[in-house]
Structures are given as structure tokens and as C-alpha cells.
Simulated scan of single mutants.
Amino acid sequence: MTTSSKTLGDWLHDFEREAFRLETLDDYGKSGGVAAYQAFLAGEPQPENYRTDSWVTTVGDAVRAGKRMYRVHILARPLTDYLRYELSWGYRRNMTAGEEFFILDTTEEELNEPAHYLYTTVTDPAYRDVKPGTVMALWAVNRAAGQGRTWVRRGCHFPGLVRYYRTQGFELVHEVQRTRTKVYLMGRRAEHVTDLEGRFGALSGPRSDTSA
């Protein structure tokens, strides 16, 4: 492994031919330009210091020197508030300085994959030790496979639930920032589950009161 004392600014100043950035997140709102982002959400004009930001100078200097700066953003609809801001303000501003942008929209590809959607589940705490929520999730995964679906998808609003659903084999696919809340969209590939009968059997019969 090699290390370098150069800063990002040094690399952007010293590169010889091309500088490329791959963006895969739905929200880079905490990486800079917070005031401009808030102005966009409030419907206000672009702040003067945003339009004349040093990044515009960096890009312009590189392009005039015969270098290329470009980025690819992989995204899916519906667009988050941040993506609307980025596409409406950020990319257009940077394009005036010569930066190039390429958008890879995976929405249609994602929508064309057959899937079941698992809505919220409610379980009795008395059965917590046999994990009824996990059993229901696995039932959905097994049923989706039996019906020729590719995915089981689900969503939530709380990071705690994201961690819990990950224990059931779901992975975070998108984080969608709404005006007042964030939505976490998750998915798990459909597959046949061989031990469902045993799991359902563990749920039968009386349970003791865990609060006693």
C-alpha cells in the first residue's frame, strides 16, 4: 500500500489528463454547499458565493489547460431532494466551467425485476425468542421464489429497523431524503427457504409472559 502527503486539492491541481468521479449515493448533502442546498429547498435564488465557488475556478483552469474533468452518477427515481438540487443547480453550474456529466438511471431496470413488497410487520413480544418477524420475512422470501419473483423489497423510516432487517438478510438499496424524513429502501433476493416448517412449528403453542 502506498501513501501520499498530497491533499485532494493538490491532486486536482497536478493531474495531467483526466479526473473522474463516480457517484452512487442519493444524498451528498453533508459534503459541502449546505447553505446553497437549504436555499434550494426554500425556493430561494442561488447565493452569489455558490455561483462563484472555487470549484468552478478549479474546473475552468483544468479545462483551459486541455485536461478533462467528468463524473458519472448512478441513480434511481424517485429523485431525492438532494438529487433535484444537484441536477438543477450543481451540475448546470459546473457544466458552464467545462465539467462533463453522465447519468446512469437504473429505475427501469429495477422496476422491471419482478418483486414482492413486504409491508410492516407487527409481532407479539412474548414470541421474541423464536423471532416471528424473521419467520414472516423468510416466508415472503420463499413465496416470492415460488412465484418466480426475483426480489422481496421493504422500506422503513428508522436506522434501527435497517439494522434489524439486515439480520433477516435484507440489504440497503437506497436512502431517499424527503423534506422532513428519510426513507430507507431495502431488498433481499427471493430464494427457497428449507426450514420454514420448523420455524413455524416453533411459533405454535402457549408462550410465557416475558414481562413477568
Rank of each mutant, 00 (worst) to 15 (best):
L118F: 01
D124Q: 02
L104R: 11
P114T: 00
A126E: 13
F102P: 01
G98F: 09
E113W: 07
R93S: 08
Y119K: 00
L118S: 01
T106G: 09
M95L: 13
G98S: 02
E100V: 11
H116N: 04
L111T: 08
A97T: 02
R93L: 13
Y127M: 10
L118D: 00
D129I: 09
V122F: 09
Y117D: 04
E109Y: 14
I103M: 08
P114R: 01
M95G: 08
T121N: 12
Y119A: 02
A126W: 13
L104V: 15
N94E: 06
T107Y: 06
D129M: 15
L104Q: 12
H116M: 12
G98T: 05
I103D: 03
E108A: 14
T120A: 13
T106L: 12
N94S: 04
T120M: 06
D105L: 06
V122M: 10
A126V: 06
P125L: 07
V122I: 11
E113K: 12
E99S: 10
T106C: 13
E99N: 06
L118E: 00
E100H: 08
A97W: 09
D124L: 06
D129F: 15
T106H: 08
N112A: 15
Y127A: 13
F101M: 03
M95R: 11
D124S: 09
T123M: 04
G98P: 04
E108M: 14
G98N: 06
L104D: 13
V122L: 05
D105P: 06
R128E: 10
E100R: 15
P125S: 07
A126L: 08
E108Q: 14
Y127F: 12
N94P: 01
R128W: 11
E108L: 15
A115F: 12
R93M: 11
D105G: 04
E100F: 11
N94A: 03
E109Q: 14
T123C: 07
T121W: 00
T120E: 05
E100A: 15
A115G: 01
A97L: 05
I103S: 04
F101I: 01
F102V: 12
D105Q: 04
E113R: 12
E99R: 15
A115Q: 01
T120I: 01
G98W: 07
I103A: 05
Y119I: 00
G98D: 05
E99K: 15
T121L: 13
T123Y: 00
F101E: 02
E109M: 15
N94L: 08
M95N: 08
T96G: 03
F101T: 03
A126H: 14
D124M: 06
V122D: 00
N94D: 10
F101K: 04
P125R: 06
R93K: 11
N94V: 01
